[in-house]
Measured scan of single mutants.
Amino acid sequence: DIEITTNGEEDAKRVIKELQKRNLEYHIEVHGNQWVIKVR
C-alpha cells in the first residue's frame, strides 16, 4: 500500500485524477485539511 498525504481538497483531486487514469483502487481519509489517500 502507498500512502499519499495531500494539502487539502484541490491537491487531493489532482492526485485522484492521476490514480483514476491508472485504474488504481484508493481510499481517502480526511484529517482536518489534510487528505490522506491510501492506494492499494
Score class of each variant (00 low, 15 high):
K13G: 06
H31A: 06
W35F: 07
K21Q: 10
Q34N: 10
Q20A: 09
R22P: 02
I4L: 06
L19Q: 00
K13M: 15
R40A: 11
G8M: 06
K21L: 14
K17G: 08
E10A: 12
Q34Y: 12
K21N: 11
H27Y: 14
G32I: 03
E25N: 10
I16P: 00
E18H: 07
K21R: 13
R40C: 13
V36K: 05
E25Q: 13
Q20F: 04
H27K: 12
N23K: 12
Y26G: 02
H27S: 15
E10H: 07
D1K: 08
V15N: 01
L24D: 02
K38P: 00
E25R: 12
I28V: 13
Q34G: 04
K21W: 07
V39G: 01
L24F: 06
W35Q: 02
D1V: 14
E29W: 05
L24G: 02
I28G: 00
V15W: 11
N7D: 12
R14E: 09
K13A: 12
I4Y: 10
A12K: 03
A12F: 11
V36I: 14
E25T: 13
R40V: 15
R40G: 09
E18N: 06
E9Y: 14
K13V: 09
R22A: 13
I2R: 08
G8W: 06
V30T: 06
I2L: 13
N33M: 09
A12Q: 02
R14F: 11
V39S: 02
T5H: 14
E25M: 12
Q34L: 14
I16G: 03
Q34D: 05
N33A: 09
E3K: 10
E10Q: 09
E18W: 15
N7E: 12
N7G: 06
H31D: 06
D1P: 11
R14V: 09
N33H: 09
T5P: 05
I16S: 02
I2V: 09
I37P: 00
N23L: 06
H27G: 06
K21M: 12
Y26Q: 00
I4G: 01
L24Y: 07
N7P: 04
E3I: 15
V30C: 06
I28D: 00
Q34R: 13
N23D: 07
V39L: 06
D11P: 04
I4D: 01
E3R: 10
D11N: 10
I2S: 05
V15F: 07
E18L: 10
E25I: 13
E9D: 05
D11T: 09
A12I: 04
D11A: 14
R14C: 11
N33P: 07
D1N: 12
W35G: 01
I4F: 09
N7M: 13
G32P: 03
E9T: 04
I2M: 12
W35P: 01
E9N: 04
I2F: 15
D11S: 10
E18F: 12
E29C: 03
G8K: 09
H27N: 10
V30S: 04
Q34V: 14
V15P: 00
T6W: 03
V39I: 13
N7L: 13
V39A: 03
E18Y: 13
Q20K: 11
Q20L: 11
K13C: 05
D1G: 12
E10R: 09
I28T: 03
I2G: 04
R22Y: 14
E29F: 09
D1C: 14
I16V: 08
L24N: 02
Y26D: 00
R22T: 06
N7Y: 15
Q20H: 06
T6Y: 05
V15K: 03
T6D: 01
I16T: 04
I16E: 04
T5L: 13
A12M: 12
I16R: 01
T5K: 11
L19R: 00
G8I: 08
W35R: 02
I2K: 05
Q34I: 15
E9M: 08
V15G: 01
H27D: 12
E18I: 12
G32L: 04
K38C: 07
I37T: 00
E18G: 04
N33T: 12
K38V: 14
T6L: 14
L19M: 04
I4S: 01
H31N: 11
I37C: 02
T6E: 02
H27R: 12
G8L: 06
T5I: 15
R40W: 12
L24A: 06
E9H: 07
I16M: 08
N23S: 06
G32V: 03
V36T: 07
N23I: 02
A12E: 01
W35Y: 08
W35V: 06
K13W: 14
K17S: 11
E3G: 03
V39N: 00
I37D: 00
D1H: 12
T5W: 15
T6N: 02
R22G: 06
L24I: 12
G8E: 06
W35C: 03
L19V: 03
T6P: 05
W35N: 01
E18C: 13
E25Y: 11
I16W: 02
E9P: 12
V30W: 05
E29H: 06
E3P: 03
G32R: 03
E9F: 12
Q34P: 01
G32M: 04
G8T: 15
G32A: 05
H27C: 08
Q20Y: 04
K17L: 13
W35M: 04
T6A: 14
R14M: 11
Q34A: 08
H27F: 13
E10C: 05
H27I: 14
A12N: 02
E25P: 11
K38R: 13
T6Q: 02
L19C: 06
V30A: 04
Q20D: 13
W35D: 00
I4P: 01
V30Y: 09
K17Y: 11
K17V: 11
E3Y: 15
L24V: 10
E29D: 04
I2Q: 06
E3M: 14
H31Q: 11
V36M: 04
R22N: 11
G32E: 08
T6G: 14
K21T: 07
V30E: 04
I4N: 01
I37M: 02
I16N: 01
G8Q: 06
I28Y: 05
E10S: 07
N33G: 11
Y26E: 00
R22V: 06
K21E: 13
T6M: 11
D1A: 11
H27Q: 12
G32W: 03
E18Q: 08
H27M: 12
I4E: 01
V36Q: 03
D11F: 08
R14D: 06
G8S: 15
L19S: 01
H31C: 12
V39P: 01
V15R: 02
E18D: 08
E10K: 09
N23M: 08
K17T: 10
L24W: 09
I28Q: 02
E9V: 09
G32K: 04
N7S: 10
I37Y: 00
T5V: 15
I2A: 04
K17E: 13
I28L: 09
I4M: 03
G32Q: 05
K21P: 01
Q20V: 12
A12R: 03
R40T: 14
T5R: 15
G8H: 09
N33Q: 10
N23G: 15
I28M: 05
I2E: 05
E18P: 00
E25G: 08
V36E: 01
K21F: 10
I2W: 15
E29A: 05
E9I: 13
Q34M: 14
V30L: 07
L19I: 05
Q20N: 10
I28P: 00
A12S: 04
V30Q: 09
K38E: 02
H27V: 14
H27W: 14
E29G: 02
R14A: 12
V30G: 02
E3F: 15
V39R: 01
I28W: 04
I16L: 07
A12D: 00
G8F: 08
Y26W: 08
V36A: 02
Q20T: 10
I28F: 04
E18T: 05
G32D: 07
V39Y: 08
V36N: 03
V15T: 03
T6S: 05
T6V: 15
R40H: 15
A12V: 06
I37S: 00
K38N: 04
L19K: 01
D1W: 15
E3W: 15
A12P: 01
V39C: 06
R22L: 15
I37V: 04
K13I: 13
R14W: 14
I28H: 01
K17Q: 12
E29Q: 07
R40P: 09
D11K: 06
Y26V: 04
V36H: 05
I37L: 03
H31P: 01
